[in-house]
Simulated scan of single mutants.
Amino acid sequence: MIRDTISLMAQALGIKSVITAADGAEAISRAFHEQPSLIITDLQMEPIDGLEMLRLIRSGRYHLQHDVPIIILTANASQSVISECIRYDVDAFMVKPVRKQDLENRVQQLAKDTKSKKPPKYYFEMYQADPAKSTDFEHNGAIVFTEEEQEKIEKISDTSPTIDTTAPPVTPEQATAKSKDRKFIRWQDKYSVGHSELDASNKQLLAIINDTYEAIAYHHADGEKGDFDDLAQRFRDYIVSHFQLEEDILHDLAYPKYKQHAVIHERLSRQAHYVLLQCQADPELYSSEFFKFLRYWWVHHVVKEDRQYREFLSQSPQSA
Protein backbone atom coordinates (compact mmCIF):
# COMPACT_ATOMS: atom_id res chain seq x y z
CA MET A 1 0.00 0.00 0.00
CA ILE A 2 2.82 2.42 0.90
CA ARG A 3 4.67 1.47 -2.27
CA ASP A 4 1.63 2.10 -4.46
CA THR A 5 0.83 5.36 -2.68
CA ILE A 6 4.33 6.77 -3.16
CA SER A 7 4.23 5.65 -6.79
CA LEU A 8 1.03 7.65 -7.37
CA MET A 9 2.49 10.64 -5.53
CA ALA A 10 5.62 10.54 -7.71
CA GLN A 11 3.54 10.44 -10.88
CA ALA A 12 1.45 13.36 -9.64
CA LEU A 13 4.68 15.32 -9.22
CA GLY A 14 5.53 14.75 -12.87
CA ILE A 15 7.84 11.75 -12.59
CA LYS A 16 6.85 9.83 -15.72
CA SER A 17 8.54 6.47 -15.14
CA VAL A 18 8.05 4.82 -11.74
CA ILE A 19 9.35 1.30 -11.05
CA THR A 20 8.38 -0.67 -7.95
CA ALA A 21 9.89 -3.71 -6.25
CA ALA A 22 8.59 -5.88 -3.43
CA ASP A 23 11.89 -6.21 -1.53
CA GLY A 24 15.58 -5.34 -1.60
CA ALA A 25 16.58 -8.32 -3.71
CA GLU A 26 14.06 -7.49 -6.45
CA ALA A 27 15.01 -3.82 -6.19
CA ILE A 28 18.68 -4.57 -6.87
CA SER A 29 17.73 -6.63 -9.91
CA ARG A 30 15.46 -3.91 -11.27
CA ALA A 31 18.03 -1.20 -10.52
CA PHE A 32 20.58 -3.14 -12.59
CA HIS A 33 18.25 -3.41 -15.60
CA GLU A 34 16.40 -0.09 -15.38
CA GLN A 35 19.13 2.31 -14.13
CA PRO A 36 16.81 4.60 -12.10
CA SER A 37 17.74 8.23 -11.41
CA LEU A 38 16.34 8.07 -7.85
CA ILE A 39 15.70 5.23 -5.39
CA ILE A 40 13.26 5.36 -2.46
CA THR A 41 13.47 2.39 -0.13
CA ASP A 42 12.07 1.23 3.16
CA LEU A 43 14.47 0.04 5.85
CA GLN A 44 12.64 -3.08 6.95
CA MET A 45 12.61 -5.66 4.15
CA GLU A 46 13.52 -9.32 3.63
CA PRO A 47 15.80 -10.87 2.49
CA ILE A 48 17.78 -7.66 1.82
CA ASP A 49 16.81 -4.64 3.90
CA GLY A 50 17.16 -0.98 2.97
CA LEU A 51 20.46 -0.45 4.77
CA GLU A 52 22.05 -3.49 3.13
CA MET A 53 20.77 -2.33 -0.24
CA LEU A 54 22.32 1.09 0.36
CA ARG A 55 25.65 -0.54 1.26
CA LEU A 56 25.62 -2.76 -1.82
CA ILE A 57 24.70 0.06 -4.21
CA ARG A 58 27.32 2.46 -2.83
CA SER A 59 29.91 -0.33 -3.04
CA GLY A 60 29.22 -0.72 -6.74
CA ARG A 61 28.27 -4.36 -6.40
CA TYR A 62 26.60 -6.09 -9.36
CA HIS A 63 27.67 -3.18 -11.60
CA LEU A 64 25.06 -0.90 -10.02
CA GLN A 65 25.29 2.87 -10.43
CA HIS A 66 26.87 3.60 -7.07
CA ASP A 67 26.11 7.33 -6.83
CA VAL A 68 22.38 7.23 -7.57
CA PRO A 69 20.46 9.42 -5.05
CA ILE A 70 18.81 7.25 -2.37
CA ILE A 71 16.01 8.24 0.02
CA ILE A 72 15.28 5.92 2.94
CA LEU A 73 11.89 5.67 4.66
CA THR A 74 12.08 5.48 8.43
CA ALA A 75 9.77 4.69 11.30
CA ASN A 76 11.38 4.59 14.74
CA ALA A 77 14.81 3.68 13.35
CA SER A 78 17.59 3.44 15.94
CA GLN A 79 20.34 6.02 16.11
CA SER A 80 22.90 3.38 15.13
CA VAL A 81 20.98 2.52 11.95
CA ILE A 82 20.57 6.19 11.07
CA SER A 83 24.28 6.76 11.62
CA GLU A 84 25.14 3.79 9.41
CA CYS A 85 22.90 5.09 6.63
CA ILE A 86 24.65 8.46 6.82
CA ARG A 87 28.02 6.73 6.85
CA TYR A 88 27.15 5.21 3.46
CA ASP A 89 26.03 8.61 2.17
CA VAL A 90 22.27 8.24 2.06
CA ASP A 91 20.93 11.38 0.39
CA ALA A 92 17.78 11.95 2.43
CA PHE A 93 15.24 10.41 4.80
CA MET A 94 11.43 10.51 4.89
CA VAL A 95 9.33 9.52 7.86
CA LYS A 96 6.31 7.25 7.37
CA PRO A 97 3.50 7.90 6.69
CA VAL A 98 4.75 9.87 3.68
CA ARG A 99 2.78 12.87 2.45
CA LYS A 100 2.89 14.21 -1.07
CA GLN A 101 4.46 17.42 0.23
CA ASP A 102 7.19 15.40 1.97
CA LEU A 103 8.08 13.68 -1.29
CA GLU A 104 8.04 16.94 -3.22
CA ASN A 105 10.29 18.59 -0.61
CA ARG A 106 12.86 15.78 -0.80
CA VAL A 107 12.89 15.67 -4.60
CA GLN A 108 13.33 19.45 -4.78
CA GLN A 109 16.06 19.28 -2.13
CA LEU A 110 18.04 16.68 -4.07
CA ALA A 111 17.52 18.53 -7.34
CA LYS A 112 19.20 21.56 -5.77
CA ASP A 113 21.91 19.84 -3.77
CA THR A 114 22.91 16.19 -4.17
CA LYS A 115 26.14 15.49 -2.32
CA SER A 116 28.99 13.98 -4.33
CA LYS A 117 29.95 10.40 -3.54
CA LYS A 118 33.33 8.78 -3.09
CA PRO A 119 34.52 6.09 -5.55
CA PRO A 120 32.90 2.63 -5.13
CA LYS A 121 36.20 1.22 -3.87
CA TYR A 122 35.96 3.40 -0.77
CA TYR A 123 32.56 2.01 0.23
CA PHE A 124 33.49 -1.53 -0.80
CA GLU A 125 36.56 -1.54 1.45
CA MET A 126 34.49 -0.10 4.30
CA TYR A 127 31.88 -2.79 3.74
CA GLN A 128 34.46 -5.59 3.64
CA ALA A 129 36.19 -4.34 6.79
CA ASP A 130 33.06 -4.67 8.90
CA PRO A 131 29.61 -4.90 7.28
CA ALA A 132 27.86 -4.35 10.60
CA LYS A 133 29.98 -1.47 11.86
CA SER A 134 28.22 1.69 12.99
CA THR A 135 30.22 4.85 13.67
CA ASP A 136 28.46 7.82 15.22
CA PHE A 137 29.33 11.27 13.91
CA GLU A 138 31.09 9.96 10.79
CA HIS A 139 30.04 11.07 7.33
CA ASN A 140 31.65 10.64 3.93
CA GLY A 141 34.86 9.31 5.43
CA ALA A 142 35.40 12.11 7.92
CA ILE A 143 34.63 12.60 11.59
CA VAL A 144 31.84 15.13 11.67
CA PHE A 145 31.98 16.26 15.29
CA THR A 146 35.07 15.88 17.45
CA GLU A 147 34.55 15.22 21.15
CA GLU A 148 35.57 18.81 21.86
CA GLU A 149 32.96 20.15 19.43
CA GLN A 150 30.31 17.90 20.94
CA GLU A 151 31.12 19.29 24.38
CA LYS A 152 30.82 22.85 23.05
CA ILE A 153 27.42 22.09 21.57
CA GLU A 154 26.17 20.53 24.79
CA LYS A 155 27.38 23.54 26.76
CA ILE A 156 25.39 25.97 24.61
CA SER A 157 22.73 27.18 27.05
CA ASP A 158 19.83 29.59 26.89
CA THR A 159 21.66 31.90 29.28
CA SER A 160 24.64 32.37 26.98
CA PRO A 161 25.81 36.02 26.80
CA THR A 162 24.92 36.05 23.10
CA ILE A 163 21.34 35.07 23.80
CA ASP A 164 18.60 37.58 24.55
CA THR A 165 17.88 36.75 28.17
CA THR A 166 14.62 38.70 28.00
CA ALA A 167 13.22 35.79 26.00
CA PRO A 168 13.60 32.63 28.06
CA PRO A 169 12.54 29.44 26.28
CA VAL A 170 8.88 28.65 26.71
CA THR A 171 6.89 25.50 26.25
CA PRO A 172 3.76 25.46 24.08
CA GLU A 173 1.70 25.41 27.27
CA GLN A 174 3.42 28.59 28.49
CA ALA A 175 3.21 30.49 25.20
CA THR A 176 1.34 33.78 25.27
CA ALA A 177 0.83 36.57 22.74
CA LYS A 178 3.21 38.75 24.75
CA SER A 179 6.03 36.19 24.88
CA LYS A 180 5.62 35.45 21.18
CA ASP A 181 6.79 38.98 20.34
CA ARG A 182 10.17 38.29 21.90
CA LYS A 183 13.19 37.10 19.93
CA PHE A 184 15.49 34.30 21.00
CA ILE A 185 18.48 36.34 19.78
CA ARG A 186 18.30 40.02 18.87
CA TRP A 187 20.75 41.61 16.43
CA GLN A 188 23.28 43.89 18.10
CA ASP A 189 26.05 46.04 16.59
CA LYS A 190 28.65 43.88 18.33
CA TYR A 191 27.70 41.01 15.99
CA SER A 192 28.72 43.01 12.90
CA VAL A 193 31.69 41.71 10.90
CA GLY A 194 32.24 45.10 9.28
CA HIS A 195 30.65 44.38 5.91
CA SER A 196 27.03 45.25 5.11
CA GLU A 197 26.39 42.31 2.76
CA LEU A 198 27.82 39.77 5.21
CA ASP A 199 25.88 41.33 8.09
CA ALA A 200 22.69 41.05 6.03
CA SER A 201 23.48 37.40 5.35
CA ASN A 202 24.09 36.68 9.03
CA LYS A 203 20.78 38.33 9.85
CA GLN A 204 19.17 35.66 7.67
CA LEU A 205 20.68 33.03 9.97
CA LEU A 206 19.41 34.97 12.97
CA ALA A 207 15.90 34.88 11.47
CA ILE A 208 16.19 31.10 11.01
CA ILE A 209 17.22 30.68 14.66
CA ASN A 210 14.38 32.86 15.91
CA ASP A 211 11.83 31.17 13.64
CA THR A 212 13.02 27.74 14.79
CA TYR A 213 12.59 28.86 18.38
CA GLU A 214 9.07 30.01 17.59
CA ALA A 215 8.27 26.75 15.79
CA ILE A 216 9.44 24.75 18.80
CA ALA A 217 7.58 26.89 21.30
CA TYR A 218 4.31 27.37 19.46
CA HIS A 219 3.83 24.72 16.80
CA HIS A 220 5.75 21.59 17.70
CA ALA A 221 3.06 20.31 20.03
CA ASP A 222 0.66 20.21 17.09
CA GLY A 223 2.99 17.93 15.12
CA GLU A 224 3.46 20.42 12.27
CA LYS A 225 6.70 19.04 10.87
CA GLY A 226 6.23 21.13 7.72
CA ASP A 227 7.51 24.16 9.64
CA PHE A 228 10.80 22.39 10.27
CA ASP A 229 11.13 21.17 6.68
CA ASP A 230 10.89 24.77 5.55
CA LEU A 231 13.39 25.94 8.17
CA ALA A 232 15.80 23.17 7.23
CA GLN A 233 15.65 24.18 3.55
CA ARG A 234 16.17 27.83 4.46
CA PHE A 235 19.25 26.78 6.43
CA ARG A 236 20.60 24.77 3.47
CA ASP A 237 20.08 27.75 1.17
CA TYR A 238 21.73 30.07 3.70
CA ILE A 239 24.82 27.84 3.95
CA VAL A 240 25.34 27.81 0.19
CA SER A 241 24.72 31.53 -0.37
CA HIS A 242 26.56 32.73 2.75
CA PHE A 243 29.69 30.65 2.21
CA GLN A 244 29.88 31.66 -1.45
CA LEU A 245 29.43 35.34 -0.60
CA GLU A 246 31.91 35.28 2.26
CA GLU A 247 34.57 33.35 0.38
CA ASP A 248 34.26 35.60 -2.68
CA ILE A 249 34.67 38.73 -0.54
CA LEU A 250 37.59 37.38 1.50
CA HIS A 251 39.32 36.06 -1.60
CA ASP A 252 38.92 39.31 -3.55
CA LEU A 253 40.27 41.32 -0.61
CA ALA A 254 43.21 38.89 -0.16
CA TYR A 255 42.34 38.06 3.45
CA PRO A 256 45.49 36.39 4.88
CA LYS A 257 43.54 33.57 6.56
CA TYR A 258 41.25 32.89 3.61
CA LYS A 259 42.27 29.23 3.18
CA GLN A 260 41.85 28.46 6.88
CA HIS A 261 38.41 30.04 6.83
CA ALA A 262 37.40 28.01 3.77
CA VAL A 263 38.39 24.83 5.64
CA ILE A 264 36.13 25.90 8.53
CA HIS A 265 33.29 26.32 6.03
CA GLU A 266 33.83 22.82 4.67
CA ARG A 267 33.69 21.37 8.18
CA LEU A 268 30.53 23.29 9.10
CA SER A 269 28.82 22.28 5.87
CA ARG A 270 29.53 18.62 6.59
CA GLN A 271 28.27 18.99 10.16
CA ALA A 272 25.08 20.71 9.01
CA HIS A 273 24.41 18.01 6.42
CA TYR A 274 24.78 15.33 9.09
CA VAL A 275 22.46 17.06 11.55
CA LEU A 276 19.83 17.72 8.89
CA LEU A 277 19.85 14.07 7.80
CA GLN A 278 19.41 12.97 11.42
CA CYS A 279 16.43 15.30 11.75
CA GLN A 280 14.87 13.97 8.54
CA ALA A 281 15.07 10.46 9.98
CA ASP A 282 13.69 11.57 13.34
CA PRO A 283 11.82 14.94 13.22
CA GLU A 284 11.80 15.10 17.02
CA LEU A 285 15.49 16.07 16.75
CA TYR A 286 14.60 19.41 15.15
CA SER A 287 13.67 20.76 18.57
CA SER A 288 16.90 19.53 20.14
CA GLU A 289 19.85 18.71 17.86
CA PHE A 290 18.96 21.14 15.06
CA PHE A 291 18.24 24.02 17.42
CA LYS A 292 21.40 23.35 19.43
CA PHE A 293 23.47 23.22 16.25
CA LEU A 294 22.05 26.55 15.03
CA ARG A 295 23.01 28.16 18.32
CA TYR A 296 26.45 26.52 18.21
CA TRP A 297 26.91 27.92 14.68
CA TRP A 298 25.94 31.41 15.83
CA VAL A 299 28.05 31.46 19.00
CA HIS A 300 31.20 29.74 17.73
CA HIS A 301 31.24 30.67 14.06
CA VAL A 302 29.45 33.99 13.51
CA VAL A 303 30.30 35.62 16.83
CA LYS A 304 33.80 34.19 17.31
CA GLU A 305 35.30 32.97 14.03
CA ASP A 306 33.71 35.42 11.57
CA ARG A 307 34.39 38.47 13.68
CA GLN A 308 38.13 37.72 13.54
CA TYR A 309 38.27 39.37 10.13
CA ARG A 310 36.27 42.44 11.22
CA GLU A 311 39.35 44.65 11.70
CA PHE A 312 40.78 43.51 8.35
CA LEU A 313 37.56 44.42 6.53
CA SER A 314 37.26 47.75 8.31
CA GLN A 315 40.72 48.71 7.03
CA SER A 316 40.04 47.63 3.46
CA PRO A 317 39.10 50.47 1.08
CA GLN A 318 36.91 48.06 -0.92
CA SER A 319 34.88 46.93 2.07
CA ALA A 320 31.26 48.01 2.06
Rank of each mutant, 00 (worst) to 15 (best):
M1D: 11
I2H: 13
I2N: 15
L8N: 13
A25V: 06
A25S: 11
A27C: 10
I28W: 01
H33D: 14
H33K: 12
Q35L: 11
I40T: 04
P47R: 03
D49M: 07
M53F: 02
R55F: 02
I57K: 04
R61T: 08
H66Y: 14
I71N: 07
L73Y: 06
T74D: 05
A75D: 12
A75I: 02
A77V: 01
S78M: 05
Q79E: 14
S80H: 13
V81P: 00
V81T: 15
C85W: 03
V107E: 02
Q108A: 12
Q108I: 12
Q109D: 12
K112R: 15
D113E: 10
K117Q: 13
K117S: 15
P120Y: 05
F124V: 00
S134W: 01
D136S: 14
F137E: 11
F137L: 11
I143C: 08
F145G: 05
F145R: 03
E147V: 08
E147I: 07
K152P: 07
K152F: 05
K152N: 12
D164W: 07
T165S: 11
T166S: 15
T166L: 11
A167E: 04
V170M: 06
V170D: 01
P172N: 08
F184Q: 06
R186N: 07
W187C: 05
W187I: 05
D189I: 02
S192A: 10
G194A: 10
H195F: 09
E197S: 13
E197R: 07
L198T: 09
A200Q: 10
T212F: 04
H219A: 12
D222I: 00
G226S: 15
D227W: 12
L231S: 07
A232Y: 00
Q233E: 15
Q233W: 10
F243D: 02
Q244P: 00
E246H: 03
E247R: 02
I249G: 06
L250F: 07
L250C: 06
H251E: 13
D252M: 02
Y255D: 07
Q260D: 14
H261C: 03
I264D: 11
I264A: 08
E266D: 14
A272H: 02
H273Q: 12
H273L: 04
V275N: 03
L276W: 01
L277K: 11
Q280H: 09
D282P: 01
L285K: 14
S287E: 11
F293N: 04
Y296D: 03
H300N: 15
R307E: 02
Y309K: 08
Y309L: 03
Y309I: 06
E311H: 10
L313I: 08
Q315T: 03
S316F: 03
